[in-house]
Computed example of a mutant assay.
Amino acid sequence: MLKLLAVSFWRLLACISLLLGLIGVVLPGLPTVPFLLVSAWSAGKGWPRLELWLLAHPSFGPPLKRWREQGAVPRKAKYMAILMMTSSVVLLQFSAAPFWLKLTLPAFLCGVAIWLWRRPEV
């Protein structure tokens, strides 16, 4: 029973993240690859056929394989991520968000940007 529950959880996570990744294909600003990474990872734990399909997909497969093999992020994706994070911080500063969030989120995103730029490129 517990194993069935765990498999169901991994499959649900794989489906939700795959759906978000597919929405990100057509919706600007919503990243695609991070959701596909989560989908492939969770599918590997509960739905191996979906994982294999994602890895073999002509569009989705190559970035997933590069990430798994090298932890690599294309330079264009790095630029887009930095642009989106910067835009978010600027918009946040003009919003009615709490002051602590206006200080904390930029610091967190700066850490993410540093981590991202230290990733290998393809």
Rank of each mutant, 00 (worst) to 15 (best):
P62Y: 08
P31N: 10
A56D: 15
L27E: 00
S17T: 14
S39D: 04
G111W: 02
P34M: 00
V89C: 13
P74C: 02
L36S: 02
A107F: 10
R119A: 15
L18E: 00
K76S: 12
P62G: 03
C15R: 14
L27R: 06
K78N: 09
L83S: 15
L37F: 11
R68S: 00
S17F: 05
V7L: 09
L83Y: 11
L101V: 08
R68L: 11
P120M: 01
L22T: 09
L19I: 12
E51M: 07
R118E: 08
L52Y: 07
W117Y: 13
A96R: 12
L2H: 12
L103S: 06
A97W: 08
F9G: 06
C15V: 13
E69C: 02
L91Q: 09
R75I: 13
S42L: 05
A43F: 09
L20R: 00
A113G: 08
S17G: 02
C110G: 15
W100I: 12
W115T: 03
R68W: 00
Y79H: 13
W115N: 07
A107K: 04
L20E: 07
E69R: 14
H57N: 14
I114C: 07
V7C: 05
F94G: 10
S87L: 14
W67K: 03
M80R: 13
W53D: 01
G29F: 03
L2V: 11
F60A: 12
P63N: 07
V112L: 15
P74F: 02
A107L: 15
P120D: 08
L50N: 10
A40N: 09
P28M: 14
G21M: 08
L55V: 01
C15F: 14
R118P: 02
W10Y: 15
T86R: 01
L13D: 05
P34Y: 00
S17Q: 01
F60D: 07
W10Q: 03
P34C: 03
V26D: 06
Q93E: 11
A96C: 07
H57V: 04
A107M: 14
V7R: 14
T104I: 10
S59T: 09
L22C: 10
L101H: 02
P34I: 01
K45A: 00
L83P: 04
T86A: 15
L103V: 08
F35P: 06
W115S: 04
L50P: 03
A97D: 10
S8V: 07
S95F: 07
A72L: 00
Q93H: 09
C15K: 11
I82T: 15
V89H: 11
R75T: 15
P106E: 06
F35Q: 05
K78E: 07
A14Q: 07
L101Y: 05
L52V: 00
L54S: 07
R75G: 08
K102W: 07
A6D: 06
V112F: 12
L116E: 08
I23Y: 05
